[in-house]
Structures are given as C-alpha cells and as structure tokens.
C-alpha cells in the first residue's frame, strides 16, 4: 500500500503544481488546497502506515496497543491541517478582494504594482 501511496502523492503534487501554474487566481487557490493535502500525506506516509492501532491508551491498563501508529506525526499533521485552512481562508478572501480592485482574474495582468 505505501508504495502505491507514494505514487498517489506524486500525482497529487503534480496536479497541485499544475493548477498553481495556471493564470487564473481561482485555480491558484485550488492548487494550494491540493498542495496542503499532498504535503500532509507525505508526512503521514513517512511515519509509516499502520492500520487498526490508533495512539489511544487502554482505559484500564493505560498501555498503547501493539504496533501503535506514530502520534507525533499525527500531531504535526493536525497542526498543519488547521494552519492550511487559515492560509486558505485568507487567500480566498484575498483573491476575492484582488479581483474587486483589479477587475481581472488573470495573474499575468497583476504583474505591476501600479494600477
């Protein structure tokens, strides 16, 4: 599965960068969303894919299940997901405002600071 995952991550990255290279600002933001998903999956896969052993301690023994998944990588990704959402919310509003001011959604038309 992890080898296949590596391929899937590669495709996600390729798709996200292709979207970010488009001139439409809407596509740029879509690429950004794909990019954060891809990046999270890289961290997740690198820590090792374990099914059926979440890092939750037993109620009674306070022991972790055998072969438990890496909690540190998960904590890292949790933070990343939330931050990525913050960035996304900001950029979505930013491009909306930019479109209002510049009256175009073409990035190549936004190359000067002068209006």
């Amino acid at each position: 599965m992890s080898a296949l995952m590596a391929v899937a991550i590669g495709i996600l990255f390729a798709a996200s960068l292709y979207m970010m290279l488009r001139r439409s600002i809407v596509k740029l933001v879509m690429g950004l969303i794909l990019l954060s998903n891809a990046a999270n999956l890289v961290i997740f896969t690198s820590a090792g894919l374990t099914s059926g052993a979440p890092p939750l301690l037993d109620k009674v023994t306070k022991e972790a299940p055998v072969g438990v998944a890496d909690p540190l990588a998960q904590a890292l990704i949790l933070t990343a997901i939330v931050i990525a959402f913050g960035v996304l919310a900001f950029s979505v509003v930013l491009i909306h405002r930019a479109h209002e001011v510049v009256q175009t959604d073409d990035l190549d038309q936004m190359k000067d600071t002068d209006q």
């Binding site: 992890s2 080898a3 995952m5 590596a6 391929v7 991550i9 590669g10 495709i11 996600l12 990255f13 390729a14 798709a15 996200s16 960068l17 292709y18 290279l21 488009r22 891809a38 890289v42 896969t45 690198s46």
Partner: peptide
C-alpha cells in the same frame, strides 16, 4: 511546459517517499 515541470516535481516526491520508506 507547466505539465512537464509539475510532473517532474511529482515524480521527485514519489521517489523521495519511496526512499524514506
């Protein structure tokens, strides 16, 4: 051109993830 560059980067990420595994 964009597709080639993006795919090259994607391939690199695949190789990197495989190497870490």
């Amino acid at each position: 051109l964009d597709a080639v560059v993006a795919c090259a980067f994607g391939l690199m990420m695949t190789l990197l993830v495989l190497a870490t595994q």
